[in-house]
Amino acid sequence: MSDPNGLIQPGRTAPGFTLPATPDGALIGPEQFRGRPVVLAFYPADWSPVCGDQMALYQSAAPVFAQYQATVLGLSVDSIWSHRAFAESRGIEFPLLADFEPKGEVARSYGAYTSNGEAARALVVLNPAGTVTWSYLSPPDVNPGADGIFDALDQLAADRKVMAG
């Protein structure tokens, strides 16, 4: 079971945080990317044993994320050492953040922590001001893909056009 309040919902301000991240352990968090959309991809664990690995998929979609000037951050409770080896093995160049100590603290603050001690498989899209505009909780064994993320990013871009016009 995840947080009793459930996954963070659109309209809420994204809780601030920084965590050690690949490749070099530097502290990274969403506030550093204000002014552009941020995708937070919480996932249960490094090393899921399939070609359909969610983080590897997002890396392969990097050129599409770049079109939206969106930053992707992957988060799990794995340590920076595990993240580093995982990122190297799958060619993952975007930051993987270690929600390791206190364990799962950031995942909890987003309502994306499970009772078996892992992050849920949850996607959260933040607008350039740091407000949640879309969130999605996937069953832990189902890779949600990226179609929902890109729909949310399209919606963001459309809203910005209306604001500007």
Partner: peptide
């Protein structure tokens, strides 16, 4: 990827 391909 826009159609929801989530692996191969």
């Amino acid at each position: 990827i826009r159609s929801g391909v989530n692996g191969t």
